[in-house]
Design a protein around this nucleic acid. Sequence first.
DNA 1: CGGATTGTTGAGGATACTCAAGTTAGGTGG
DNA 2: CCACCTAACTTGAGTATCCTCAACAATCCG
Lengths: 237, 237
Amino acid sequence: MPHSPINRALVKLLPLFEKVSDQELDDILASATSRRYTAGDAVFEQGQTADQFFVLLHGRLRVTQVTPEGQQVIVRMVNPGDLFGIARALRRPDYPGTANAVSESIALAWPTAQWDVFMEGHPALAVNAMQTMGGRLQEAHARLREMATEEVERRVAHAVLRLANQSGRKESEGIRIDFPVSKQDIAEMTGTTLHTVSRILTAWESAGLVRGGRQKLLVRDPHRLLLIGDGLAPGHL
Amino acid sequence: MPHSPINRALVKLLPLFEKVSDQELDDILASATSRRYTAGDAVFEQGQTADQFFVLLHGRLRVTQVTPEGQQVIVRMVNPGDLFGIARALRRPDYPGTANAVSESIALAWPTAQWDVFMEGHPALAVNAMQTMGGRLQEAHARLREMATEEVERRVAHAVLRLANQSGRKESEGIRIDFPVSKQDIAEMTGTTLHTVSRILTAWESAGLVRGGRQKLLVRDPHRLLLIGDGLAPGHL
DNA sequence: CGGATTGTTGAGGATACTCAAGTTAGGTGG
DNA sequence: CCACCTAACTTGAGTATCCTCAACAATCCG
């Protein structure tokens, strides 16, 4: 599969490549390889030497970190168009987390050495990459603020809304999270246990806010969920 | 005070300007102004239009965010050499937090409009700035992981160690945090209350790990603190 | 049709918060 | 220089949230 020629049209519209000329883009794509991953596959693992960085074209990835004690934390979800595995930009020799495909995924990969070349040679790309990191930093701070100040139910509400915004697809009955999410996953995003998540979601389901199922999630009433997230709706009746 | 000529030697050694030529540096400094802040002063406030970005030359700043409910969270401490207030890099029109001097401080300031000019015109600077953001992102993730998985005492241990590493000065008896830190501050860094911090620190003081005082903190035994942080030493007894 | 993964629900208990005094330290003005 | 005032801190008691432990049910997959 590697070294198949990559179609410029596929990536031209990604925000990451905004204001990058066709000429530059061809140059950039020349050193890329395309890879396919099936659900469950690891794109890279925590601690491994960071010899590549990636852009996700299709699918979803879950990036996790494992604590020394073996507890897992979900750092973020990678959505199509996202840059990931950019350990090099952090001047790290290894990947700080593990990236797993949660559904069938396709990514472009470049050798790490290309990073600095791209950054120095394509200022527009550098600005876009910086913006990507900025967005990620803001999300991390938002989550920190939540973890520091909010009770579990509100954190779960925010996590679910974030999933709906980033990876939701509108359906007749609400917003569907269009990849498999387990209660354990939500627990690892919010710093709680799957038990607590289960209790909260069943309560919400009774209230008609969401509809769950085995690794399925449909948000029926985002507005009321937002109220819960902001502490303006009951919760602990 | 503004528009006094700025000495190149003062900033030449900062990591941010590594590999930036003298020529470029002069160009960059030409549009900078230098400002002084006394303890307590706000450099900028949350929500304010981000018309400048800064580099701290001397002193310490505390960057906080306030939740809609009025709870404060300390996002980070700014140390000499650090870039801060770079809302522009995040494509934000306003500052996402408030920066207060905790001790006498001096900073360089540039108009926001210069940001893109610098990034496009000085690739070395762009790479360094990206690295700065990368470091910050890693710290945010580390804190997230802590908040998600660790109990309060361990989080406090990590926060204190982080302060010691970033802003500590070696003394005969240990590592002194060389600016005023209150228990409230530590609480706002770790997502707990000043009461709990007080209880933990007095316990540590009895054990000879630290020595406290009104807004004072001296780490006497970083090694044992690290053990507590990693969950390898008692704590709750 | 088993086996495994995922999810549900209950009971009990611990961590850490809230509420409530009170104490100490530092700065300020008389 | 001392008295006072405030901000920072200490400490105790009661309690709520949420975790742990435990058993069981449902769903998916081969």
